[in-house]
């Protein structure tokens, strides 16, 4: 059921408590003067094919794939979600938890980012997610369904993949121009045209952007290859690079 529209009566006492903090604004976009042409929208926008299974957030400057067929039609949006490994042991992988990191969910299938985008790694299925602390670092402790053959090392970036370990995002050509909060329970499979329950998200990303690398979500090496900016610490590209853009 879409949460916003749930209704009902509970003649008892519901004690509701929640807390959050907004960690201030982090200006991810690189500041420079000159005529910019980043905030150009793709035709149609598209349906997000890998929304978060629960309430979560994508950040301004996050990357995505605007995937279309060979006629540039029927667009689908694949968000690049990244998780930074802090430590791992056995079936537990601790990933960094802060106000600026994507949130993991039970059921996520992750892999250490392969060398090439869309490549294959070892798939790890998350069966439990616990909020905890390792040393002084806030982490999400992920419990995996099986111990990975090679334990992810500190600093490794995990990305979403299918059950065979194939990375979900196959191209990087889109930038989110602002934060997007995913507030509803999404449909189990957004591609299922027979399932009408729950939420589907449609959004239009921008064709390009120039960002401070250290303010972006952690980025695997296979994504860094898309950088077209020749300034240390800055990441940028434009989906239509025909000359004047970058």
């Amino acid at each position: 059921m879409v949460e916003y529209t749930s209704n009902g009566v509970f003649r008892g006492r519901a004690l509701i408590s929640a807390s959050s903090s907004t960690g201030g604004v982090r200006d991810v976009f690189y500041k420079y003067k000159g005529i910019k042409n980043d905030l150009v929208e793709f035709p149609f926008g598209g349906k997000v094919m890998n929304p978060f299974p629960g309430v979560a957030k994508m950040y301004a400057g996050d990357l995505a794939e605007y995937r279309v067929n060979e006629r540039a039609e029927k667009p689908e949006i694949y968000l690049l979600k990244t998780y930074e490994v802090y430590s791992s042991e056995g079936t537990t992988v601790n990933i960094i938890r802060s106000g600026f990191h994507h949130i993991p969910f039970v059921g996520d299938v992750l892999t250490v980012a392969p060398e090439t985008i869309g490549g294959t790694g070892a798939a790890m299925t998350v069966v439990a997610v616990t909020k905890t602390k390792v040393d002084t670092q806030d982490v999400w402790a992920l419990t995996l369904s099986a111990e990975p053959t090679t334990a992810p090392a500190k600093g490794d970036i995990l990305v979403e993949c299918d059950e065979d370990g194939k990375m979900l995002v196959k191209n990087i050509n889109a930038v989110l121009p602002c934060d997007f909060d995913f507030c509803f329970s999404p449909a189990a499979d957004p591609a299922d045209m027979e399932d009408y329950e729950n939420a589907r998200y449609l959004l239009t990303p921008s064709m390009g952007g120039v960002m401070y690398k250290h303010k972006m979500s952690p980025m695997p090496a296979c994504v860094e290859k898309f950088n077209k900016v020749n300034i240390n610490g800055v990441f940028g590209f434009h989906a239509i690079t025909m000359g004047s853009e970058y």
């Binding site: 598209g46 045209m193 027979e194 009408y196």
Partner: peptide
């Protein structure tokens, strides 16, 4: 009783049932 959209060349999605 259901509405979905898989026409045109843009996004496709179920809408309501």
């Amino acid at each position: 009783g259901k509405v979905k959209w898989d026409y045109g060349v843009g996004a496709v999605s179920t809408i309501y049932d």
